[in-house]
Design a protein around this nucleic acid. Structure first.
Lengths: 255, 255
DNA sequence: ATTGACATTTACGTTACGTAAAGGTGTATA
DNA sequence: TATACACCTTTACGTAACGTAAATGTCAAT
């Protein structure tokens, strides 16, 4: 079976321009050119186009697709299984985004207060994963599959447990803070315990903790109406109290 | 809490260039410009950036995101629920691609013979769905949600049953063809029944059946080694026999 | 002989930024 | 006080994967 550009384009659901472009960049050359200069494609090209479209689906660049397909060690079956694996990963990524959206909806309904940092966790995680994809191959070659898989697994597991532990920690923190507030002493033992619980809670969201950032956040709790009203809900002045406790805890003074 | 470009960029996990670009195209303007010309962002901008990144995740163009966010009728909560729905749809689409890959793997292992047409079904369906997305809103406004949903549902259900029925039909067709071949008469009753079963089988893949295309495919069975060897496996000459039967069935003569 | 649907090449436009280049700003330190 | 250094600015060209238009050739049927 032989196809002209238009025929193959219709068959594959792409434009004729795309096929000419693929010819131009050398990723899919026609089987031959007839006497009138027409591109003629055969069965081999149909199959190759299918491969290209499969990989394109994954947002792999045409340049990389070419390298994959032209590699002499290219194993079609292995590539397909790999492709399937990547699709599964992509679905997992979407699941995470869905979680993020649902959390945000919950936030809008006032059930959870999300810090700015937290809001962007979904995207940051995605970026980390994309980095992993980019450098994954090299890492796998250097350290072996097992090491990389384990590292990834750890990340995944952390993500699954994250939320539950988070809720616990936050609850303990809030209770401690409420107790501490009654003493009126931001430098007291209870208030300092609350500040420490707050730090622990924070490290769930911040990959690297710093006293400066912690103190800055404490100040933000006072400055930002959204947070202030959250902490002041039961007892007005709680936001200020928490800030003072954290400033003492971090040893950073207000200016 | 106020942020300069770099601070906000780090917070959100995007580049400073991205923020300047977003300023340039007017999708995210800083809250103010300070005396040195620096861009200063506030809480409102942080929230808007989050929205932008959410939609960007869906491959919605910045231009369209702008339209969505700037629409006076824009309902944040509804947009988020809509966003969630689209993510679920995207996941479903990936599921379909996974099925396609698995089918292809099975094909490579020799269990199924897929026609060129079938190979591209996954992509075609995706295109149809994309079309639906583009024109879905208008259709929903014209015909109401229920009608559109029902139509979509039909498509989905068909996809689920497709494979099982397909296997049955193909089996019946092959058996009938084998019987017909023994008679040696492509114009005979059995051969014509086989041709008809073949047509039924085809209509699963081709959205519009035409005698011409059917006859063309029959000829392809003879010309293409892959198909010829498949049909001729048990009895050499079966491919030719089938072609002749289909040519008679469609009433289209070879030239 | 003409029409209309194909085919060709050349070339500029598009999106969402990356990446210099050339220069101003803010602050900690020698 | 000078300098280093990390930030900020604008201008402008580069990139990927095509879309789109223009100008022109080919093929089959009427």
């Amino acid at each position: 079976m032989e196809y002209t550009v238009q025929k193959l384009a219709k068959l594959a659901g792409v434009s004729a321009r795309t096929l000419r472009y693929y010819d131009e960049i050398g990723i899919l050359k026609p089987a031959r050119i007839n006497s009138s200069g027409y591109r003629i494609y055969g069965q081999k090209e149909v199959n190759r186009l299918q491969q290209i479209l499969f990989y394109r689906e994954l947002d792999i660049s045409l340049d990389n697709i070419k390298k994959i397909l032209d590699s002499p060690a290219f194993d079609e079956a292995a590539a397909l299984r790999d492709h399937r694996k990547k699709l599964l990963e992509k679905r997992h990524q979407i699941d995470m985004l869905i979680k993020n959206v649902e959390k945000t909806i919950a936030h809008m309904e006032g059930r959870i207060i999300m810090s700015d940092k937290e809001k962007f966790q979904g995207f940051k995680k995605k970026m980390i994963e994309e980095n992993e994809k980019k450098f994954g191959k090299e890492a796998r070659e250097k350290y072996g599959d097992k090491a990389v898989d384990k590292s990834n697994e750890k990340l995944m597991n952390m993500t699954e447990k994250e939320y539950d532990e988070l809720v616990k920690l936050e609850k303990e923190f809030r209770e401690t803070l409420a107790e501490a507030y009654k003493t009126g002493e931001p430098a007291g033992e209870l208030a300092q315990k609350a500040a420490d619980l707050h730090r622990q809670w924070l490290t769930f969201y911040w990959h690297q903790y710093s006293k400066e950032a912690h103190a800055g956040l404490a100040q933000m709790y006072v400055d930002d109406e959204r947070f202030k009203s959250y902490y002041d809900a039961k007892q007005p002045g709680t936001a200020e109290f928490l800030r003072d406790a954290i400033l003492i805890y971090t040893g950073i003074q207000n200016r």
